[in-house]
Design a protein around this nucleic acid. Structure first.
Lengths: 210, 210
DNA sequence: TGTATATTGTTGTATATACAAGAATGGTTA
DNA sequence: TAACCATTCTTGTATATACAACAATATACA
């Protein structure tokens, strides 16, 4: 369904801005794959690509129960803090702005399987700290508050530091899979998470089709 | 090192364009994470971390040269062998069938960055061993022979074993990112690769849009 | 009727201008 | 010395203008 969007000039007139600013908005939406434009024809809403969730952002509690295992967690920390330089950049907030900081360890049949350290933008999820994370994961709450439009993920291998090794019940220095994930909604960057998995208890899979 | 880039006005004057077009170029490079800008301070080249996308199968030689670094490799092994049970299952050939087996270490500016151990189906790439892998990577050759239609990828963290540690110039037991990748073409399973990266020299990235 | 041409409306590109906002510097003053 | 302020340079935002490139449509003409 190629539904057409008003032209730059129409939008400019309609919203009382110049054509160039209307154009910039359309360009940004085009960069985000929301719109498609073609010279001489016009601007159209883009076909929503059959969200073939290759590397989907799933709730780990759901994953574990989908395997028929029991899910449990331990909340190590849930508080407000000041954004460090890295966190501020990731969340696109000013440095030393107040952000929510939580650390939760997720267990599969009682065995720790993920260290989830998360920084959340209070502007987009103000009730974050009031959630009952024993029964709702941060992921589930955030998905409800602000539907995700984008996720940037980075994967690397690290040696477990002391605190993480203790929480995951592995030896310090053991290989871990570390995932950095920044999730964005339409309004802005919602959350920045560091997920650490024991290397011998977890794998990441992706199936690509071309 | 935070090397600074000329300001918008300087670039405009230097290249004889207006400030706005110089600015647009800088903005695009910033969107691509090539530059970082901050108001009042200036524009800087962003730290380029060795990272590749989890969602695409790219030639590592191209990735390295795209970063402006020099690519080199060491061929540790290139021969025919009998398929083990795992390899046979992955390649969908009978057990103990003849398959090609190669081990190549890829280097970025002389520093080992990937151990590539690959099993290839001779039926789909008969000339595999005749390739000059000093100048053509297995990836490049296979893509030419049989266009990929699917890739199954698994990522995990492991401790480096002796042979790999030696080849990658890291200590045994150091954390490594291990990627298993099985690539299929329309006709069948082409290749099965085990890619091991030093954890502190490599990252995998993925950007998802919903 | 069929074909060429002109017109209109669209996006794409480049420019010039003005001012706001942030950060560092230097000088003045208490 | 310490605090304050003005200046300057930077990026960020918004606007207005002109023209190019492309596509569809209307018009004129053979």
């Amino acid at each position: 369904m190629h539904s057409q969007v008003p032209s730059e000039n129409q939008l400019a007139q309609q919203f009382g801005v110049s054509r160039m600013t209307a154009r910039r908005a359309l360009t940004e939406l085009t960069d985000e794959r929301v719109l498609k434009r073609s010279q001489g024809l016009g601007t159209f809403v883009a076909e929503s690509v059959a969200a073939s969730s290759l590397l989907e952002v799933r709730n780990i509690a759901d994953e574990i129960s989908a395997r028929g295992h029991s899910y449990s967690n331990r909340i190590l920390l849930a508080q407000e803090c000041m954004a460090s330089a890295d966190v501020a950049r990731a969340l696109e907030v000013p440095e030393q702005a107040k952000v929510f900081h939580s650390i939760i360890v997720h267990c599969d049949n009682g065995l720790p399987i993920q260290w989830e350290e998360r920084f959340t933008n209070p502007a987009l999820a103000p009730d974050y700290l009031e959630q009952d994370f024993v029964h709702t994961t941060p992921n589930a709450y955030l998905s409800k508050v602000a539907p995700l439009t984008q996720a940037d993920t980075t994967v690397e291998a690290i040696a477990a530091e002391a605190a993480i090794a203790h929480a995951l019940e592995i030896a310090p220095g053991d290989a871990c899979l570390q995932v950095w994930r920044r999730t964005k909604s339409r309004i802005g960057t919602v959350s920045f998470a560091r997920l650490v998995h024991p290397g011998n208890r977890y794998r990441l899979g992706a199936q690509l089709r071309f």
